[in-house]
Nucleic acid binder design. Structure first.
Lengths: 144, 144
DNA sequence: CTTGGAATTGACGTTAACGTAAACGTCAAC
DNA sequence: GTTGACGTTTACGTTAACGTCAATTCCAAG
């Protein structure tokens, strides 16, 4: 391990600049979607004239947004969560509030996780039963 | 444990009949929503004249639908999943197909779970950092 | 008998999250 | 100089998932 990477726990990707089409391709969405997220205040890329220029930070942020979407959060909720950690952390009162909200959100996420685990368990159950049934009929569950 | 419950691994609730308003209250939704789900073919309650009568089975099914929604599935997806296990399981080919789809779905769910775990980890990280910061300032993170 | 509470069926309204199309600017390539 | 790839804004269209409201029925209570 080099000295450069030794001080860097998470491997950052080189700080590039991305076009809107580039990000759209990478994340499998359209440019329209990215502009829409900007309208909604979720990302604020630099501009060079009218053209949008996205930093690595913007890219990470976009990835975060999309993961939130995959988890079923609305854009409004995602915006709140993003804003949450953007606020000033100078005062003790603000830190307490941030802590409180974080905990609330974690509880929500863990409820979701319980739902998800239950869902997975049920489907695995079905898988097991069907496999069993197939074996009972002398068929290989993994065969074609 | 009594003989009655001993043979019953999962405690079934007594087979009652529910009104639409009753179910709506219980699940925190409106009757309109339940009727809408029926229009979409997600539930098919009995009828007594025009009035809908819901069985315990219908109730479980409704709960399942709502859990699916909490997980971010669309009604169309939920319908597919419900229909999936409704199909006939007599033929080996059908069993194989069911098994295949189950596995595909389980993979999807486990991807979601990975997303969710990552999300949770990040927020716990924030919680830890903020707690640390508060302690550094001589404030109790759990105090008021 | 009528009054009130719960149910029903339309039918139209609404919000979120984009899609789609029109009209235009910019720049490098041919 | 025009063609084509990429970018822009403005604006209207669309789908999902209900909300809302009107008009009606059914039934038990007073």
């Amino acid at each position: 391990m080099t000295a450069a990477t030794a001080s860097q726990a998470v491997p950052r990707d080189l700080p590039r600049i991305y076009s809107i089409a580039e990000l759209a391709r990478e994340f499998g969405i359209t440019a329209r979607t990215i502009r829409f997220y900007e309208d909604e205040g979720l990302i604020k890329p630099r501009r060079q004239g009218l053209t949008r220029l996205y930093s690595s930070h913007d890219r990470v942020r976009l990835g975060w947004i999309l993961r939130g979407k995959r988890l079923g959060f609305s854009l409004a909720e995602i915006k709140q969560l993003l804003d949450l950690y953007q606020v000033d952390r100078t005062g003790v009162q603000q830190l307490r509030e941030l802590l409180r909200r974080s905990r609330v959100h974690i509880e929500d996420l863990e409820r979701r996780r319980a739902d998800l685990d239950q869902h997975i368990a049920e489907f695995k159950d079905v898988e097991a039963q069907v496999s069993q049934e197939l074996r009972g009929r002398g068929a290989d569950p993994n065969g074609d």
